[in-house]
Design a protein around this nucleic acid. Sequence first.
DNA 1: ACGTAAGATTCTGCTGTGAAGAACAAGCCG
DNA 2: CGGCTTGTTCTTCACAGCAGAATCTTACGT
Lengths: 247, 247
Amino acid sequence: MKNKPPYAIESVDHALHLATLLQQENSLGVAEAAERLGVSRSTAHRLLAMLVYRDFAEQDADRRYRAGPVLRPGDATSAPVSLLRRAALPHLEALVAKQRETANLMVLAGTQALFVASVEGDQVLRVGDRAGRALPAHLASGGKALLAALSPGELAERYADAGDAVDLPRLRRELALVRKRGFALNDGLTEAGLTAVGMAVPAENGAPAAAVSLAMPSARFDRDLLPRWVAALSATTTAIEEALRPQ
Amino acid sequence: MKNKPPYAIESVDHALHLATLLQQENSLGVAEAAERLGVSRSTAHRLLAMLVYRDFAEQDADRRYRAGPVLRPGDATSAPVSLLRRAALPHLEALVAKQRETANLMVLAGTQALFVASVEGDQVLRVGDRAGRALPAHLASGGKALLAALSPGELAERYADAGDAVDLPRLRRELALVRKRGFALNDGLTEAGLTAVGMAVPAENGAPAAAVSLAMPSARFDRDLLPRWVAALSATTTAIEEALRPQ
DNA sequence: ACGTAAGATTCTGCTGTGAAGAACAAGCCG
DNA sequence: CGGCTTGTTCTTCACAGCAGAATCTTACGT
């Protein structure tokens, strides 16, 4: 065991320790977590709530907690994220220079869509940098684009524990539409006044590793401009795919 | 983004957010981490130190920080840890019932050996439950047994950043001896008065997923009994291997 | 070789945040 | 249905976590 740091933070230590316990156990209840950490049940419950909030844990229907997407082996998107980021950034920047709206690079982690990179548009009213954040995949435009590329079995498995939180038949119908049109929309689902168009980065073999979304204030969303944004997204995602190809 | 929990813990939130940033970035410096979190540099440094302590981060020679073993895709040991644990526990218990010393199940994560499961012996003086802990792999008996099964390239890669902390030529000689004898010893290297014998669980294809160690007070370690412990470990690791085979 | 700037690390004082105890809610079993 | 166990919510308070300052380390330019 390493030496504890000279300026240790006890609350952080408990949380990280609990995360590693979750990674190793099948599942943990609050009382057991409390005992393992040597803290009260209320403290253990708060720590678990934080781990759930940041996707290090998930809570099952039986109220027990288990490891969340951050701690689980990589999803189908096993391309290293920093490599994705590096390959995609110039193309995101080019997209933003032309369209002047904020562009995002997103990946799937469990049922969440993670923002890996953001390049902000330069207009005064704009969507901000969301890099490092996560949204429910079934609501975000990039998340939907990635979900649309999953097989029915993979989708069912990802949402096996979703219960009533997600209307699966309705999601399936929406994803079929996404596949037909080639892009996905998020119109105020994750933030009032924000509209985004998302498209998956194509992949020759296997599931797409990432998606690109163009996000703007709903006030500037214009259906007549949709074909132009879709064309721009298509060019960008194709360019990113080529940048990701092994040389 | 999920709703923040009603009783959020701000320090924990910062740490977990920083961990996810590390997972996404190639590397981060202290100042950049501070800016990303909106905290002072001293706070960011303390958080990073905690992440390093719990293996969520590692610090490079250039003083920057990157994701640690907990956050990285699984090692060669990609078998889910909870599955390993479930398969191994009955056999660990049988081993302990016969030998009356504490048995551990260990896996490799980077250059650390993680204790996945422990079953304590029933004698008054005994080695305690170390489940959830990590030791330097090159010192722990189970860690050595797993390192001995790595190719020279893999070993070099794992210890590429070890600097002077590990005498690599000496470690290589020791691992060659482990391979020859089939077991590894830890005689007081990780805890004064504690001696352990470790053996890898065989694997038909690829590197062993785990190792088993039998740990006892050094006062009870008897070289005349070594063949008996080695035979018992061999039976246990073989039984675990069979339990892990796809049905 | 020296000076400077940038970034990492260490230290300390203070206040507001994190922990725990109590109360409440939920689930399970006889 | 009642009792017990376990998860969740709430409140109080003291001490732990934060930030600013000081110090250390490293890299670069002259």
